[in-house]
């Protein structure tokens, strides 16, 4: 079985972000830590578990992003994937998700894959679009927010459970090739092994260069970015930790959530 897993590098959730000078997009402060999107990590883990159960399976990793995002491909290989392709973008700017999906879908690793796994969304942009759009490009059946999957005997495809609202799950049978987007909680991603990481660091990745600026007709664009509106007053308590604690106790007891003497 050939599996393609799409991974993205994202800033840590505590990263310091600001609005760039013409309010066109987001600047991530350069001291921030970047890592693999957590949803994608779960997708890599799911692929590695299939490889362990079905010897002969190969896993190819694709990531689209600036030069520094190469490390997430190597990390995925360290977790147990075999090869990787890096589509290098000039920067971190917004790319229309259909443009991005089209880039990945054009790879032979995408059209040859029996199974394509993506994260359910990226933690930074939270669009949840690249997976389903690629499925549409490649005319594949697609299930999103997958929390459980079973590869069936040859010819019977893959059975998955999707998470839906209210504590329900939807069981779906898909013929292969198929595309699945993976929800967190499906597994606990492993740490890369040292020996595999050493191999990953020596491995030559396929490198391609892409540029969203050459996309003459993006379907959507960013008009501007702003800081979110404050929905409540949001009083920031000041002082030392114990001073803040005293203030909080007063506030909570004034509102009779707590009784203090």
């Amino acid at each position: 079985m050939k599996i393609l897993v799409c991974v993205k590098q994202v800033p840590e959730s505590e990263a310091v972000v600001s609005i760039d000078k013409d309010a066109g997009w987001v600047d991530v402060h350069d001291t921030s830590v970047f890592r693999m999107n957590h949803f994608d990590e779960c997708a890599v883990e799911a692929a590695v578990q299939i490889k362990e159960a079905f010897p002969g399976t190969t896993i190819h990793i694709i990531s689209v992003g600036p030069e520094r995002s190469e490390v997430v491909i190597r990390r995925a290989i360290g977790m147990g994937a075999d090869h990787g392709t890096h589509m290098v973008t000039p920067g971190d700017g917004f790319v229309d998700p259909s443009t991005l999906a089209g880039w990945i879908a054009s790879l032979s690793e995408a059209s040859d894959a029996d199974l394509i796994l993506c994260g359910a969304m990226s933690e930074d942009l939270m669009q949840g679009q690249v997976g389903p759009l690629m499925a549409e490009y490649l005319s594949l059946p697609c299930a999103t927010a997958v929390v459980q999957m079973t590869i069936m005997p040859v010819g019977e495809g893959v059975h998955v459970e999707r998470e839906i609202e209210g504590g329900y799950r939807e069981a779906v049978a898909l013929q292969l090739p198929a595309l699945l987007t993976i929800q967190t909680g499906i597994n606990q991603p492993r740490y890369p092994s040292l020996s595999k990481l050493l191999r990953a660091n020596k491995l030559k990745l396929n490198t391609l260069y892409v540029d969203a600026m050459e996309d003459s007709a993006p379907l959507q664009g960013v008009r501007r970015v702003t800081l979110p509106r404050k929905l409540r007053e949001g009083v920031f308590l000041e002082g030392s930790a114990s001073q803040k604690a005293e203030q909080l106790l007063t506030i909570l007891s004034d509102r009779s959530f707590l009784t203090v003497l």
Partner: peptide, 18 residues
Amino acid sequence: CFSRDVYGGKINADMVSN
């Protein structure tokens, strides 16, 4: 413009459709 959260809700992006 259609507003949506990015970066965990730290930033709001106003999107336009073409």
